[in-house]
């Protein structure tokens, strides 16, 4: 396959960026999108040019490191991560636009790499449980009803890639934050911090400069792990419950 790429190039956080055009040839439809970018970078290095910086790690769709807005879609046209997106999703001769996640809470570090540490700080605010460390506890010591376990797991699937923020017209982190809150709040292990978790994580999310939710639904459409939009509804419910309870204390 022969492709024309228009890639966002930006030297550093303070520099102005621009879309640069590159031609790549000899791309196999079986390559992943990242392997296609590797091919481009090898050529750029051979030519003595600066390779395109992009985030990647496991390349198995489970770590949440890769990003990229491809032709206006977070993680590209398929509902998966960029590393699991294959070039067979494109046609020979296509022009593909590649841009970084856009949100003021995710500043560009270089080219397609953005700083997602705002997510880490949201997790630090309440995405944990209080439990003694050491040997693993007896699995049946704390019974969890099957529907609750399923609900928790559905939300625990979030890999924190930030596609929800990238897709949201308001640069909101509601889907990420709600997934992280819900997966712990529904479980008995998460019960001691049920109120403080939702209040602190939402507060941190606001402090990081993410936008608010207008229920456009773009986040859930972009999410490679299929976190549902209703996750945000559940977070709102938990937040209102916690606000009432803490107000009474």
């Amino acid at each position: 396959m022969k492709l024309t790429l228009r890639v966002w190039r930006q030297k550093n956080a303070d520099a102005d960026g621009t879309m640069s055009t590159y031609e790549v040839d000899g791309i196999s439809p079986d390559m992943s999108f990242l392997e296609m970018l590797d091919t481009l970078n090898e050529e750029l290095i051979l030519r003595g040019e600066d390779p395109v910086a992009f985030d990647h790690d496991c390349r198995e769709g489970i770590c949440g490191a890769c990003s990229l807005v491809i032709n206006g879609d977070a993680h590209g046209p398929e509902r998966t991560t960029t590393c699991q997106l294959h070039m067979r999703s494109f046609k020979d001769g296509d022009t593909i636009d590649v841009e970084p996640w856009r949100a003021s809470a995710f500043p560009v570090i270089k080219d397609l790499v953005v700083d997602r540490s705002a997510f880490d700080r949201i997790i630090q605010a309440g995405g944990y449980i209080t439990a003694p460390t050491g040997a693993a506890p007896e699995a049946h010591a704390t019974p969890v009803p099957k529907p609750d376990a399923d609900f928790a797991f559905e939300h625990a699937e979030c890999i924190g890639c930030g596609a929800c923020v990238a897709a949201c017209p308001n640069g909101a982190a509601m889907l990420f934050t709600s997934a992280k809150i819900n997966h712990l709040n529904v479980l008995p292990q998460g019960a001691p911090e049920r109120e403080t978790r939702v209040l602190d994580m939402v507060e941190r999310m606001d402090e990081e400069g993410f936008g608010g939710c207008t229920l456009a639904g773009e986040c859930a459409t972009a999410c490679p792990k299929g976190i549902p939009l209703m996750s945000i509804t559940q977070m709102n419910k938990e937040w209102l419950r916690a606000t009432r309870r803490v107000g009474k204390r």
């Binding site: 228009r6 966002w8 879309m19 807005v69 032709n71 206006g72 879609d73 636009d97 841009e99 856009r102 949100a103 003021s104 809470a105 949201c168 017209p169 308001n170 640069g171 909101a172 400069g209 993410f210 936008g211 608010g212 207008t214 229920l215 456009a216 639904g217 773009e218």
Partner: peptide, 28 residues
Amino acid sequence: QLSRRDIRARPSKYVHKKPRASYATRTM
């Protein structure tokens, strides 16, 4: 206040534009 915040949270637009969200959502 929320709109101001939303616009600040997403200052730079994507170069590749796509029609997004339903008509009712976009016209709120």
